[in-house]
């Protein structure tokens, strides 16, 4: 599905919900409707109108000084420049065709300041949750999106294979994270989905998150959670490496994957000790009451007798399909 077709689907849903304009601050949502892959930044950012989509035109407008790296269907006349004065941004927003007179605006976050300024600029408009609308659309993947997620998973696995090849006694946890980040960049334009865990496992203790300068010893098991972003899609890898030994896989992973069937309730899987999270254009939230649907891609994780292991899985009516090895 092209970005244009995806955008048309978003506009259909906006029309169903009576939403006149989407004003998006979250990069994953902007990626979904625009195809743009802008400068990678870590962490949260307060809401700002970085991407605007009026239903009346179906045309996307981006906050950017340049069209460098943007999809060709977003012309320079559909960009509005950065400003330190939020009123300039609001004025640029209000001037976009299809925004004036809006009565329902979908936003994916808010700050008290922008809430006040939006109210003053578009006094007839009420705000509704666009994150919920886009979450529902984003979670069911098209074949090309599944391919992109598969490519990202392979990039993460390749980087981990190279990192594992350098694992030997004396290497520190921070060195493993450092090597993974280096190998990750060998696949075109890759940034991390998150800075990974490469932590020596301790018997009976839950897996740690933050690497330390602890040196690895022969026989140590190393819990790995890592991920990359490739073309805007997240590729996750979860494994247990062994210093001076072959990686070990969790015997229970196959069963956990098999239980991720269409119709399964997320909370039931989690209660059974199976980690299940949505993955795609980044993390995609699944509530405990959520039900797995055909076309979803999920990251499945188990901790089985001290072995941390995981898989990225496409849910299909005929059963789950692994996108990872």
């Amino acid at each position: 599905m092209t970005t244009a077709a995806r955008r048309a689907r978003v506009v259909d849903r906006m029309n169903d919900a009576g939403i006149d304009v989407l004003v998006l601050g979250r990069e994953a949502n902007a990626r979904y409707v625009s195809g743009a892959d802008r400068l990678w930044l870590a962490g949260t950012r307060p809401f700002a109108p970085g991407c605007v989509l009026p239903a009346a035109t179906g045309e996307v407008h981006l906050l950017s000084i340049t069209d460098d790296g943007l999809p060709p269907d977003i012309g320079a006349d559909h960009l509005f420049p950065i400003s330190w004065n939020p009123m300039n941004i609001l004025d640029a927003l209000a001037a976009i065709r299809g925004v004036a007179g809006a009565t329902l605006i979908g936003v994916d976050g808010m700050t008290p300041l922008f809430e006040q300024l939006l109210g003053a600029t578009l006094p007839d408009a009420a705000l509704v949750d666009a994150e919920a609308l886009l979450r529902e659309l984003r979670r069911v993947k098209e074949p090309d999106e599944v391919d992109a997620i598969g490519a990202a998973v392979r990039a993460a696995e390749d980087a981990l294979t190279q990192t594992a090849g350098e694992l030997r006694a004396g290497v520190r946890e921070i060195d493993l994270k450092a090597r993974f980040e280096e190998h990750m960049t060998r696949t075109r334009l890759t940034a991390p989905a998150f800075e990974g865990t490469f932590c020596v496992a301790e018997a009976g203790a839950p897996p740690r998150t933050f690497v330390t300068d602890r040196a690895v010893r022969d026989g140590d098991r190393i819990h790995v959670r890592a991920g990359v972003m490739l073309d805007g899609f997240e590729g996750l890898v979860t494994r247990t490496l062994v210093c001076d030994g072959d990686p070990v896989r969790a015997p229970g992973l196959d069963d956990a994957v098999a239980r991720c069937r269409v119709g399964a309730r997320v909370g039931d899987l989690r209660s059974a000790g199976i980690g299940v999270e949505g993955t795609g254009l980044g993390h995609e939230e699944l509530g405990a009451d959520g039900v797995l649907l055909a076309g979803m891609t999920v990251a499945v994780e188990v901790l089985d007798d001290g072995v941390l292991d995981g898989a990225v899985v496409l849910l299909r009516a005929e059963g789950p399909q692994r996108l990872s090895t």
């Binding site: 990626r31 962490g43 949260t44 998150f194 800075e195 933050f210």
Partner: peptide, 22 residues
């Protein structure tokens, strides 16, 4: 906001793409 939470509490979180961090 993660920089504000970190300032107020000292809590660490792994650096992550915004799509995961939020």
């Amino acid at each position: 906001g993660q920089s504000n939470v970190g300032y107020a509490t000292g809590a660490r979180v792994p650096a992550a793409d915004q799509a995961r961090a939020i």
